[in-house]
């Protein structure tokens, strides 16, 4: 279902923008706005429809922070790797999140519940190591607390 819609939308978008300058970035913006990310097979189709190499599309998508390559998660989990957090062993938190959610940084869980990113300084170095879920900051997080923190968000859903 979603796939079909995507295909129809894409053709509409291409028709709308095809003859205009800078069309690639405008179409990518629309795709990002509609889906919250730019799926790979959409890029592949776009590459065919516009006759623009896929490599070029990825140059654009990865150049601007605005575009995401992974579907957004319901909750955004970030672990800070700024200097202060790095020194307070943030890497063990990253490992732990990756282990529990079975994804790597930049990815989204299969059920689209969590998206996980490693970020630069969150501006609360005093609390290092820092982890953030959506807007909420968790400071001085210990490795063995990660599972508990994450499970709160799963429970909330049920």
């Amino acid at each position: 279902m979603k796939k079909d819609r995507l295909q129809a939308d894409l053709e509409g978008l291409v028709k709308k923008w095809k003859s205009k300058k800078g069309n690639l970035i405008m179409i990518l913006h629309s795709i990002e706005n509609i889906y919250g990310y730019v799926p790979r097979d959409t890029s592949l189709k776009l590459s065919r429809l516009l006759d623009v190499p896929l490599a070029r599309i990825y140059e654009v998508i990865t150049f601007y922070n605005y575009f995401k390559l992974e579907p957004p998660g319901k909750h955004n989990v970030s672990v800070c790797m700024g200097t202060a957090c790095y020194l307070r062993d943030a890497s063990s938190l990253i490992e732990e999140v990756e282990k529990i959610l079975h994804i790597k940084e930049g990815q989204t869980t299969k059920d689209s519940m969590f998206h996980f990113d490693v970020v630069r300084c969150l501006g609360c170095c005093g609390l290092a190591p820092v982890m953030m879920i959506d807007e909420k900051v968790y400071g001085k997080v210990k490795k063995n607390e990660v599972a508990d923190i994450l499970s709160k968000y799963v429970k909330e859903e049920e």
Partner: peptide, 9 residues
């Protein structure tokens, strides 16, 4: 061929 490109910045 466009196999290679610069990604990110």
């Amino acid at each position: 061929v466009w196999a290679l490109s610069f990604l990110q910045r």
